[in-house]
């Protein structure tokens, strides 16, 4: 049976120069960190660049349900969205590196999606949600664009 359970193979966030900010590899496909980074560079070169200074990538198997991966990226960004008014960028990620990594840890356990509801995740991580998030919809659509940019590599 093709593997739905181990949805995520790799998760990484690169800056606008293609340098790694953080990364997590859930399968041993690469011998060492340098090979991982070379892979990230290759994908970055194929990514259409936009205005942001970070790009979030979730990589799954070629048989993976693309929308399941989109959910992962949505859960991640929606959870972190409440951190800063400016939304997610290199500064908020690094300023809140503890919350960023905890969020990732609560969403993915060894490649398996552990939780997907942003409110639940924020609660487990200890992010205090203040007020309503009016622009949630907008952020979703942004995230979809981003998800799409890595999905195409799965087709290769």
């Amino acid at each position: 049976m093709s593997n739905f359970l181990y949805s995520v193979k790799y998760f990484f966030i690169l800056d606008n120069k293609g340098n790694r900010i953080i990364a997590k590899y859930y399968s041993n496909d690469f011998e060492n960190v340098n090979k991982q980074k070379a892979f990230e560079k290759r994908i970055f070169e194929k990514t259409a660049k936009a205005y942001s200074n970070v790009i979030i990538y979730v990589v799954g198997d070629r048989d993976q349900n693309e929308l399941a991966l989109l959910h992962v990226i949505n859960s991640f960004t929606e959870t972190l969205h409440s951190l800063s008014e400016n939304g997610i960028n290199k500064k908020t990620i690094l300023d809140n590196i503890n919350l960023t990594l905890l969020t990732l840890d609560e969403i993915i356990d060894e490649g398996i999606v552990l939780e997907s509801d942003p409110t639940v995740i924020a609660d487990r991580v200890g992010i205090r949600v203040e007020g309503e998030q009016d622009d949630l919809d907008q952020s979703i659509s942004q995230v979809i664009t981003s998800a799409n940019n890595f999905l195409k590599y799965l087709n290769k």
Binding site: Y51, N53, N89, K91
Partner: peptide, 12 residues
């Protein structure tokens, strides 16, 4: 790609 921030951040 999220258009989260447009500021030039090279010197930051």
């Amino acid at each position: 790609m999220g258009r989260f921030e447009k500021k030039d951040d090279d010197e930051y």
